[in-house]
Simulated assay, not measured.
Amino acid sequence: MDLDATLILLGAGLLAGAMNAAAGGGSFITIPAMVFVGLPSIAANASSTVALLPGTLASAWAWRRDYRALHGIPFRIMLLISFLGGLAGALLLLATTSRAFDRLLPWLMLVGTLAFAFGRPLGAALRQRVRIGRGAVLGAQVLLSVYAGYFGGGVGIMMLAAWGLLGDLDIKAMSALRTILVSAANFVAVLCFALAGPVHWPATGIMLVAAIIGGYLGAILASRMPAPVLRGFVIVFSAAMTAAFFWRAWA
C-alpha cells in the first residue's frame, strides 16, 4: 500500500473514530475512503465494519452499568435477535455480487443519511401519535439487525426510533442498550467477514488503529463542541458522499 493511500486511511480512521465518539456516522467516512484507495465496495464495507468494531465494543463497555430491559422484553432475547440478524446480514452481503452492491450502496448510504438527519425528530413525532406492541418491536429489531450486519449506517438511531413507539423511554438506558445490540450485530458480522475473506487486512489495520486514537480525541472534542455542529458536519459530509456514490454507480 502506497504512502498516499496510507495517509488517506489514517485520516479517515481518525475522523471516523472521532465522529463515532462524538456524534456517530463514522462509516460514512470509512467506506468512501476505502473505495477511494481502490478496494471493491463489498471489501470496503466489510473492512470498515472490522476497523470500527473496537470502538463500538469500547462504547458498549462504557455503557455497561446503564443497561435496562426494554419495556419488559428480556435483554437476552434482544441480544439473540441482534446476533442472528447480524449473521444473516453478513451472509447476505457475502452472497451479493460486487456489481449489485455497487448499485445498492448509494441507496444504503441515502437511507443511513436520512435516518441520521431526521431519525430523532421523526421518532419524537411518531411517539406522540403511535404506540406499538412488543411483537412489532421484536419484528423491527430483526430487520434492523439484518441491516446492521449488511451495512448499518444510521442503524442506532433507527433502533431508538422504533423502540420509542413503545412509549416513554429512559434515553440513557436505551442508548446503552442500542450500543450493545449494534455491537453484537457487528461482532458476529466481523467474524463472518474475517472467515470468508473479503476483509483487506492492511487497510483495515491502519484504519483500526487510527479509529481508536480518533475515538479518544473525539470524546474530548465532544465535550468542547456543540452537538448540533458535529451532527451537521456528519449530515453534510454523508450527503456529499451519497451523491458521489450515486454518480459513481449510475453515471
Rank of each mutant, 00 (worst) to 15 (best):
R120C: 02
Y150D: 12
A62V: 09
A136H: 00
L169F: 06
A117N: 01
A148R: 11
L84N: 08
R131G: 12
R68F: 08
G133R: 11
S59W: 09
L166E: 01
G167A: 09
A58S: 13
R129D: 00
L80Q: 10
I81N: 02
L110T: 04
I42K: 15
A51T: 07
S41M: 11
G167P: 10
D170F: 14
G85S: 13
T113H: 07
G139F: 07
A69Q: 14
L160A: 03
F101Q: 13
R64Q: 09
I171S: 06
G89F: 03
W63Q: 15
G152E: 10
D170L: 11
G85L: 13
T96E: 02
T96S: 15
S48R: 06
L84Y: 02
M174I: 13
G119F: 11
S82I: 06
L84P: 02
A90P: 05
A58R: 06
I157M: 08
R76D: 13
L169W: 05
I73M: 13
V35C: 10
T97N: 13
G86R: 10
L57A: 08
L160D: 03
G112I: 10
G164S: 03
A148C: 15
S82M: 11
G156N: 04
R103S: 13
A161H: 01
W163Q: 09
A125R: 14
G149Y: 07
L91Y: 13
I42T: 14
L92D: 01
G139W: 11
S48I: 00
A117V: 01
D168C: 03
S41T: 15
A136S: 02
W61N: 05
L87N: 01
W107E: 12
L70Q: 07
G139A: 14
A173L: 09
V146W: 02
V142A: 07
L104W: 08
L87H: 00
L108V: 09
A100R: 15
L92E: 12
R134K: 15
L122F: 07
I132Q: 01
A161Q: 04
A69D: 14
W163E: 08
F101G: 03
V137D: 00
L70I: 15
D168M: 13
I77C: 13
L138M: 14
I171G: 06
M174Y: 10
W63N: 12
V155N: 10
A162P: 04
W163L: 00
W61Q: 03
W163S: 01
L165R: 10
D170E: 15
M34V: 00
G153S: 15
R64I: 09
L108N: 01
S59M: 12
L126E: 01
G152L: 08
V35P: 00
A44C: 01
A90K: 03
A100S: 15
R68Y: 03
A44T: 00
M158L: 13
M34C: 05
P121V: 05
L126I: 01
L165K: 05
I73H: 00
A161F: 02
R76W: 09
T97C: 00
G119V: 15
V130W: 06
W163C: 03
G89I: 04
G72F: 01
L143E: 04
L53N: 08
R76F: 09
